[in-house]
């Protein structure tokens, strides 16, 4: 693995890149469900959600490239960066697992993203505010979709309950990172451009805990916390995800429809 020294990005470009990478990587993961979901209807639902996220990612990466001012396009950022240059959280790159794992990841991430976008749409940066304002309705549906499934699987059969609980246990260690700030985000939050993720935690916990209670599920207590995604350190499966996502573009540079 080649570890390149990342050029110093303007803070705003770095922030847009984080938001874009979260959306891009989760969209890629959800796309993996197509033709593998339990139902053809669910294939379509997960693909729709993935495409919503891809749309957000395209705008955010394009904007990151513009702010950076080095001429990088959305495609350059999505397909030509190496693993250590991605700054998405580790939650979104986690493998799909079974449907319950995906729904657990989806419940937590869409709850976080909805709270984030709901604030960001009133933020000081007009482009980020516009992206968030459009996406907030999409993400409200994503959260509803995940909520419906967590309720049904948790309060369903013995096996569905067991699998749903296992899914929640699987993703819990990756939540701390969502709500942890750093210098970049603090600096931008002070100007009203970024949203302090710490501030989202009470609202997100309250929503998820209410869903889990109704679904007769337990909120796990994690024994460890993932960290490092925002500074380019990723979990084992992320390289495989990138290989699949990037190989076409890298094999056929400049290919287009």
């Amino acid at each position: 693995m080649s570890v390149q020294t990342q050029p110093a990005l303007p803070l705003l470009a770095g922030y847009a890149l984080r938001l874009g990478d979260d959306a891009l990587v989760l969209g890629q993961r959800l796309g993996e469900w197509v033709a593998h979901a339990p139902q053809i209807e669910e294939d379509v639902a997960l693909a729709n959600i993935g495409l919503d996220l891809l749309g957000q990612a395209r705008t955010l990466l394009t904007y990151a490239g513009e702010v950076e001012g080095a001429g990088r396009t959305e495609d350059d950022l999505a397909f030509l960066r190496d693993e250590r240059d991605f700054v998405g959280c580790q939650l979104v790159e986690q493998p799909n697992g079974d449907f319950a794992v995906t729904m657990a990841r989806q419940l937590h991430f869409s709850t976080y993203q909805l709270a984030l976008y709901a604030r960001l749409q009133h933020g000081a940066d007009p482009t980020l505010a516009a992206v968030a304002g459009k996406a907030v309705k999409e993400v409200a549906y994503h959260r509803d979709h995940a909520t419906q499934w967590v309720l049904r699987l948790g309060d369903g059969t013995e096996e569905s309950h067991r699998r749903m609980q296992a899914g929640l246990d699987r993703v819990e260690p990756y939540l701390e990172e969502l709500f942890t700030g750093d210098d970049l985000v603090s600096s931008l939050a002070a100007d009203g451009v970024a949203v302090d993720p710490e501030a989202l935690r009470p609202e997100c916990d309250a929503y998820v805990d209410a869903v889990l209670t109704e679904a007769t599920l337990q909120r796990p207590v994690p024994t460890w916390h993932a960290r490092g995604g925002r500074s380019g350190r990723h979990s084992e499966s992320f390289g495989h995800l990138l290989a699949e996502m990037q190989h076409l573009h890298r094999s056929h540079p400049g290919a287009s429809w």
């Binding site: 379509v44 509803d144 049904r152």
Partner: peptide, 20 residues
């Protein structure tokens, strides 16, 4: 038409399959 476990999920599936 489509399959769904109950009415609320049927509405959501219909939204995804037929109004996207």
């Amino acid at each position: 038409s489509l399959h769904a476990p109950d009415a609320p999920m049927a509405l959501r599936n219909a939204r995804d399959v037929y109004t996207r």
